[in-house]
């Protein structure tokens, strides 16, 4: 059938605009019409089965759609279908699934976890995920840290201590690393000498007069936190200056001594105010335990 012939057989709506412009009345395909009727029927059935219509200050809850879940406190709740009830059920299922395995961990000490290969591997795999989601933004994936900004967790230097108790405290309550700026207390020459002396701790320098001068300034101004020996104080988060690992100054092994001193001077001049937030409210006790174990494993043991 040609197009022309077909158009002659189609009905019009009966309107005529400007005398002779007419509107075809093409009926929708039957399958489409039925699709529409079915959605109408579906909606009506849905009204009865699920929460649907507002009524005053409440709404119809639907029929035969109860969800049952147990809260953490052990209360059994039966309610109509809601996404939050489904969430509670999902969380409950996960809790029950993990309960046996996790219960073992709450009883084990860190040393016991460490000795048992399977337990150790499981704790690390759990903590790795937590670390990636929560800690890696600062400490970087794998705990490498960012030089001069966020401490590396894989090296041998522990600003706040490496034993389990100390790491747990760091995670739970966070840490505030504070060193005052000395740009007003000390003049340029003094800062220069004290930086020279600080570098002398980890790599011996030749200018003894400068070292001697720097030592005096250090003992008056810096030793209260860093100690006269320069080994630092983990109670205060004062860094150990005697090893070759720099936790704040942006120093790498390949740098020349002159650049190293400049880096140290920057720290002395600007001071430090850095903070790690506390995580107590974001993690469960068990999660903190696993993370503590993982972080300790990351670094080499002192």
């Amino acid at each position: 059938m040609s197009k022309e012939k077909k158009s002659q057989t189609v009905q019009t709506t009966g309107h005529a605009w400007d005398g002779d412009i007419q509107e075809f009345n093409n009926p929708l395909p039957t399958w489409w019409i039925w699709g529409f009727y079915i959605t109408v029927v579906f909606a009506i059935v849905y009204w009865f089965l699920y929460p649907a219509w507002p009524v005053g200050d409440s709404y119809t809850k639907g029929m035969g759609n109860t969800v049952e879940y147990t809260t953490k406190e052990g209360e059994v709740v039966v309610t109509h279908w809601t996404t939050r009830a489904l969430y509670q059920k999902e969380m409950q299922a996960a809790r029950e699934q993990q309960a046996v395995q996790l219960a073992k961990y709450s009883k084990l000490s860190f040393d016991e976890i460490k000795k048992d290969d399977a337990m150790r591997a499981y704790a690390i795999s759990v903590a790795k995920v937590l670390f990636a989601d929560n800690c890696a933004a600062c400490h970087q994936p794998g705990g490498a840290g960012l030089i001069s900004m966020y401490p590396s967790l894989v090296d041998d230097d522990w600003i706040w201590g490496s034993d389990y108790k100390q790491i747990e405290t760091s995670i739970r309550s966070g840490r505030k690393g504070v060193m005052p700026s000395f740009s007003k207390t000390l003049n340029e020459k003094q800062i220069d000498d004290v930086a020279y002396y600080v570098l002398n701790y980890s790599s011996k320098q030749n200018d003894f007069a400068r070292v001697k001068n720097g030592k005096e300034i250090f003992n008056t101004n810096c030793a209260a936190c860093h100690t006269q020996k320069g080994i630092g104080n983990i109670q205060l988060g004062a860094a150990n200056l005697t090893d070759k690992i720099w936790t704040v100054a942006g120093i790498t092994a390949k740098m020349k001594d002159k650049d190293k001193i400049n880096s140290i001077k920057q720290v002395i001049k600007n001071g430090i105010a850095r903070e790690m937030p506390g995580w107590e409210n974001r993690f469960s006790d068990l999660e903190i335990k696993m993370l503590t174990f993982y972080v300790n494993e990351l670094g080499s043991k002192q």
């Binding site: 809260t71 953490k72 406190e73 209360e75 309610t79 809601t82 996404t83 939050r84 009830a85 509670q88």
Partner: peptide, 15 residues
């Protein structure tokens, strides 16, 4: 909101 102040499932009762 300090969620530790509320029972698990408290907020589910609002739906």
């Amino acid at each position: 909101v300090d969620f530790k102040q509320f029972d698990d499932g408290y907020f589910a009762t609002f739906r």
